Amino acid sequence: MDWFVAGLKSQSNEVKTKAAEELRLLAKHNVENRIIIGHSGAIRPLLSLLYSEVKITQEHAVTAVLNLSINEENKAMIAEAGAIEPLIHVLRSGNDGAKENSAAALFSLSVLEEYKAKIGRSGAVKALVDLLASGTIRGKKDAATALFNLSIFHENKARIVQAGAVKYLVELMDPVTGMVDKAVALLANLSTISEGRMAIAKAGGIPLLVEVVESGSQRGKENAASILMQLCLNSPKFCTLVLQEGAVPPLVALSQSGTPRAKEKAQQLLSHFRSQREGSAGKGKS
C-alpha cells in the first residue's frame, strides 16, 4: 500500500493518476482491501486529488473515495478528513462520471447523522440541485438520492426548496425519466414545509401527483397521496385544485387496494374532502 500512497503524492501526474486508478479498483469489490486502504493513509491524498485539473485523475480519485466510503469506519475517516468541500468542487467541475460519483459519495457520508447538517450547511445542496437539473440520468438519480437523505434533517428541507429543486423534481415525475418514485419520495419530505407546498403547486405538480396516485408504483402512490394530504390539510385553495384534477376516483381506488399506509392516507384525504363539502353546504343553508 505504501507505493500507492506515495504515488498519490508524486510530482508526476501520470503516477498520481495510476495510483488513484489502482486504489479505485482495489476498493471496488473487496471488503478487506477497503479496510487496508483506509488505514494506509491514502484518504487525505485522495481528497487532495479531487482538486486536480486533470479530469480523469479527479474521476479516479473521487470514485476511490466513494468505494472506500462503503466501509463504516472509512466513512467516518473520510468525513473527518474534510471531504465535503472537495466533493462539492467535483460536483461543480468534474466530468459526468466524477459528478455522479461525487453525489453518491455525499449520499454515503450523509448516512452519518451529524453530517446531514454539515453537508446541508456547506453549499452541497445547490451543487446537487444543479446536477438534478442538468446531469446524466445516473447523475440525476445520485443527486436525488443524496438530497432525499439530506431532507430527512428538517433544516435542510428549506435549503433544498430555496435551491430550486422542486421544479426539477416535478419534471422528473414524467414516467419517461424512470425517476418518478425518487422524485415523489423527495417531494413527500419537502411537502411537510409551507415553502415546499407552495413550490409544488407553483411548479404544476398537482395534476402529476394525481396521475401518480392513479397509475404509479405502490410506493409512488403512497408518497403522492401523502403529498396531496399535506397540500389539502394546509390550504383550502390547494384542496380545490386537487379536487379539480379529479383526485377522488383514484383516491377511492387507493383506499381499497393500496399499501396499508397508502390506504390510510387516501381515507384521511377522502374524509377531509367530505368534511369540507359538508362545511360549505352548511354555510349555504344559513
Score class of each variant (00 low, 15 high):
Leu8Ser: 05
Ser12Asn: 12
Val15Glu: 11
Ala20Gln: 00
Leu23Gly: 02
Leu23Phe: 01
Leu23Val: 02
His29Gly: 14
Asn30Ser: 09
Val31Ser: 15
Glu32His: 12
Arg34Met: 08
Gly41Cys: 04
Gly41Val: 03
Ile43Arg: 00
Ser48Asn: 15
Leu50Phe: 04
Tyr51Lys: 11
Ile56Asp: 12
Ala61Pro: 07
Ala61Asn: 06
Val62Cys: 00
Ala64Leu: 03
Val65Ile: 15
Leu66Asp: 02
Asn67Pro: 01
Asn71Cys: 12
Asn74Met: 00
Asn74Ile: 09
Lys75Met: 05
Ala76Asn: 13
His89Trp: 13
Lys99Gln: 13
Lys99Gly: 01
Ser102Gln: 01
Ala105Lys: 03
Leu109Asp: 01
Ser110Gly: 10
Ser110Phe: 07
Ser110Ala: 13
Glu113Ala: 11
Glu114Ile: 15
Ala117Glu: 14
Leu128Ala: 04
Asp130Val: 06
Ala133Cys: 12
Ser134Leu: 11
Lys140Met: 07
Lys141Val: 03
Asp142Tyr: 15
Ala144Gln: 07
Ile152Gly: 08
Ile152Ser: 10
Phe153Pro: 04
Arg159Cys: 01
Ile160Met: 04
Gln162Ile: 01
Lys167Asn: 03
Leu172Gln: 06
Leu172Asn: 02
Pro175Gly: 10
Gly178Ile: 00
Lys182Pro: 02
Val184Phe: 12
Leu187Ser: 05
Glu195Cys: 00
Arg197Leu: 07
Met198Val: 15
Ile200Met: 00
Ile200Lys: 03
Ile206Thr: 08
Ser215Tyr: 02
Gly220Arg: 08
Glu222Pro: 07
Met229Ser: 15
Pro236Ala: 12
Thr240Asn: 11
Glu245Phe: 08
Gly246Pro: 08
Gly246Asn: 03
Ala247Gln: 10
Ala247Glu: 02
Ala247Ile: 01
Pro249Asp: 07
Pro249Gly: 08
Pro250Cys: 04
Ser257Asp: 09
Thr259Glu: 08
Ala262Gly: 13
Lys265His: 15
Gln267Ile: 12
Gln267His: 11
Leu269Lys: 04
Leu269Gln: 06
Arg274Met: 15
Gln276Tyr: 13
Gly282Trp: 08
Lys283Arg: 15
